[in-house]
Design a protein around this nucleic acid. Structure first.
Ligand code: MN
Ligand code: MN
Ligand code: ZN
Ligand code: ZN
Lengths: 124, 124
DNA sequence: ATTATTAATGCAATTGAGTTGCAATAATAA
DNA sequence: TTATTATTGCAACTCAATTGCATTAATAAT
């Protein structure tokens, strides 16, 4: 299934590109309000994930957030960094800090989702 | 609001005590099937969380899992360990491995939720 | 032991994030 | 230009979790 380039994808990609923070479907929808359907946002984000263009951060607030992959190879993704969610401003961001973990013998890790929650620099 | 001791709480606590893995509401419900309502399980688990008896692990499968706190002080909790979810057997477990992260200057971390997903020893 | 207080429970209804089916639309290939 | 099929919009649906409310029962007071 080859992807097609559409206004919806461009708009969402644009938002992600110009945003420091990771974005939720909700936030994207209300920013682009009226220009596309709820479901389209979900579908665009999911296709970006499948294509390795963005990575999804599952948050403990029950939502998911999406951020552009920085310096990921098509074949060799490294999303082994922490994320941070601010309880005040609600922003979710990628931290520089890498996740360092000794994986127990015999285990195979496919993905990691590491989220710190608290108050960000601006809100602490 | 002082807590009361009830059969429901005892049953759930018992399960958590005798389980190696963290448990989801769903799993608890079907194990104790018939003895209590779905909602009661949720409420019991939430009260345990509030009381610092168990900690909640938010998983990327959309559910939450609960595990007894080990060696947590009433005042000084340390849930700074990784968790692991197996894509095959679905078990979620607490890992020994501690989360070591340099929190960016100015940030305040209130909680962390660090989950590795993949295949466990038995399923790899 | 009896009664009063209110936490805990069961049941039905609701919330909220995310998905799915399907017909209509539009990007790309022929 | 025409054909192919990915994408979209809309409505309906799924699924974990929460909420309202009347009833039950654990604990405190008498
Ligand atoms: Mn990230
Ligand atoms: Mn744990
Ligand atoms: Zn903030
Ligand atoms: Zn397993």
């Amino acid at each position: 299934m080859k992807r097609r380039n559409t206004p919806a994808k461009q708009a969402v990609l644009n938002l992600l590109n110009t945003s420091q923070a990771a974005l939720s479907q909700e936030l994207i929808e209300q920013t682009l309000k009226g220009t596309m359907d709820r479901v389209t946002v979900y579908r665009v984000l999911n296709s970006f994930c499948e294509d390795g263009l963005v990575h999804k951060i599952v948050s403990d607030d029950g939502k998911s957030y999406f951020a552009l992959c920085q310096g990921c190879q098509e074949t060799h993704h490294h999303h082994d960094h922490f994320h941070f969610r601010c309880l005040n401003c609600q922003k979710v961001e990628c931290l520089q800090e890498e996740v360092k973990v000794k994986i127990p013998a015999g285990y195979r890790v496919e993905s990691m989702n590491c989220l710190l929650t608290g108050y960000c620099k601006a809100c602490a």
